[in-house]
Design a protein around this nucleic acid. Sequence first.
RNA 1: AGCGGGGUGGGCUAGCCAGGUCUAUGCCGCAGGGCUCAUAACCCUGAGAUCGGUCGUUCAAAUCGACCCCCCGCUACCA
Length: 501
Amino acid sequence: MPREKFYITTAIDYVNAYPHLGHLYEKVCADIIARWNRLIGRDVFFLTGTDENAAKNEKAAREAGLEVKDFIDRNAKRFQELCRAFNISNDDFIRTTEERHRKVSQLIFKKMFENGDIYKGSYSGLYCYGCEEYKTEKDLVDGKCPEHGTEPEYIEEECYFFRLSKYEKQVLELIEQNQFIIPEKRKQEMIARIKSEGLRDLAVSRSRVGWGVEVPFDPKHKIYVWVDALVNYISALGYPDGEKYKKYWPADVHLIGKGINWFHSVIWPAILLSCGIPLPKHILVHGYITIGGEKLSKSKGTAIDPFKLLEKYEVDAVRYFLARDIPFFEDGDFSEKALVERVNGELVGNIGNFIHRTLTLIWNLYNGEVPEPHDYENDRDCMRLLESIKMLPNTMREKFENYEIDKALKEVADFSIQCNRFLQAKEPWKTKDPNALFLCVNAVRTLAITLRPYLPSSSEKIWKMLNLDGLPEDYGWDSAGELAIKPGHRISKPEIVFKKI
RNA sequence: AGCGGGGUGGGCUAGCCAGGUCUAUGCCGCAGGGCUCAUAACCCUGAGAUCGGUCGUUCAAAUCGACCCCCCGCUACCA
């Protein structure tokens, strides 16, 4: 029987600057979801990448004193390094300047045109030559561009439009009648917006930009960045006849930040409908990371560099904090103080400490050999812990199915507290209680598996310390609920897994 | 400005929809004590909130209604 497939994407990032904490957060969340799906046995394809065709890049490159291509390559590399540095398990990394993407981007545009959904029109507005951008009233200060101090000029130019209006009914139906957008709050926002203002046709080409993908039948126009960017989700799979496309499309989850919900929930489905391509299953909208309650902002200096964090903290410490402290569907605040407190208090103090004390107890009291239990069925405390071991993967599965990755992780933390309490009650350092140690060592195994999506390398360390064969994924998620470590099994010499900061 | 969500001890948060048992929950942090196998876990005690404000409904409101203040999100045709 073929395995169920699971295709997850992140948004692709603009390369006009280096990655910040927000970029990392989205990748970590996607990684956790991807890894969890692998653990439950799905055939996962996890995509991330960079959006490199924006006109903004031209400007940013100029300011950096580099050729556009060099500038983009440099920054894109940085995003790839980010993935490696933080143990992100993406299966591919798409760059929209790659040929495999450009040709699909053009193909999609052509298809939309052939289906009668692209027509020529004109766009007009206030244009600032300095910025090479159209401006709105609110962009201006005293009628002038705040950056260049010049008055923008009213101009009109020819461009192509996408008949977005044609898909209003279908898109609204898609959103209203399905769990297409998660969470509900974001769904309601989109419904409200469609109902109040409807869908207007969208200008999908630009003729004033030098950097971008040419409209295939009219190369002086460039394809509008958003249309181009969205296409990455299928171009990376080799649309229209790549094996991966056939296998993995439609996407199960497009993970995005709340700021780009409209593009993913409305424009993207309309494009796909126009081309007759199946629609993705879910648009999953996470919250933002804030610093002192404020949005990350370069100008305010709050755009934290993830690489800087690694100079002080371990990868898994950062991952733990992001997954645990930021409520997945809402904004959450980042501070080093909060990170240190969370890691020291919970990851080290509860989870790490429990692991360490049970393993050293077995090491010291039983020379590293798991003792033979007897009649623990008659012990209330033992049966309660056993029940929790069995239940943990189930309760976490429920959370994961609702993408509540922060709440799922809290279950692990709560479990470790219970384990510590159990150990305290049994006092095996006095009693050598074999039942307690037998159950606890199995609880450690439960932790190794349930932490696997969040803290892949720490999980592996625990696994090795338990001296188990293979890796957690060889046994699968549900195995976390089993007493798979048998009496007589020898563990390795205990070492500290989570260090105090 | 329109629509939507929210304001609970230092921080986050439960409770509100189905009003009384809320003299308001849990976690973190803080003060003190117990215990000590362990990277001080676990247990106990304590300080700290009149539940944004005002008015009302009611025998009774954090919980219902009105108005006000503040915060946030989406939108304001962001090329």
